[in-house]
Design a protein around this nucleic acid. Structure first.
Lengths: 124, 124
DNA sequence: CCTTGACTTGGAGCTAACTCCAGGTGTTAT
DNA sequence: ATAACACCTGGAGTTAGCTCCAAGTCAAGG
């Protein structure tokens, strides 16, 4: 799979895919004899994983650490698990926060919708 | 309420509070005769609202537009409602996305936890 | 053969949202 | 009265995460 197809499939720009490789977020993709990237099954899986994690806002640095540990093999399983657990907690907190904001938005929309707008409610 | 108290209460830095005012996200706070900011009840409410919205990632620009409309009075109620509705939908989508990532993290953690690690699962 | 188009690289540039700094003013405590 | 402290301003600097650019290579089509 060439870079354009991967880009298309996952909605990541060509530049982003190359950038991720450059900074070590995706391992060096194998090249055809003339230097063109040929994404293998593994590469694709990583792109998919990274895309998912990034879309939830996990920092690039954390992900670089994580994939670095994966590279190093089975000895790092505990450390990897710890990273994932920590990020899981952070993410759960974030979701709860977003949910609160969503609730507030819903409330404010309902106020506007029902024209319940009073001096007290309508300040902001 | 002085800026340091507001900062303390809402966990926004002094610089951030002044920055928000500078860019029009919070209206110009009234000053004591010697120029010190004195946050009134309204100002506090705005800080609280902005903090909540920003914590959910609503862009500053959108919020500037919104508070600008609030300044302009009742004629802008429809426009404000539209902004809130649009942001509400974006936020709901984001929450769904984060939830998917959370599920994936939980799955991966359970794989590590149960040592179900096989060649297929353990790639990343 | 020449052009078109997809790819390559290293490096510079960009955006959002702060964050820091220097230099200054006014209040409070010793 | 002098030091410490909390505040002020305008403007510069920082960070994360891309995004763009110039210059170059190669394969395929007319």
């Amino acid at each position: 799979m060439k870079i354009a197809e991967v880009s298309e499939k996952y909605g990541l720009s060509l530049d982003t895919l190359r950038y991720y490789e450059r900074i070590g977020l995706i391992p060096t993709v194998t090249r055809t004899p003339n230097g063109i990237r040929e994404y293998g099954e593994m590469d694709i899986k990583r792109v998919e994983f990274i895309k998912c994690m990034r879309s939830a806002g996990l920092p690039i640095e954390v992900l670089i650490d994580y994939v670095g540990l994966v590279q190093q093999g089975d000895a790092t399983v505990e450390a990897r698990k710890e990273i994932l657990k920590e990020q899981r907690e952070l993410l759960a907190g974030k979701i709860a926060e977003l949910q609160k904001t969503l609730d507030l938005l819903d409330y404010k929309i309902s106020v506007y919708e029902n024209k319940l707008l009073t001096k007290e409610q309508g300040i902001i």
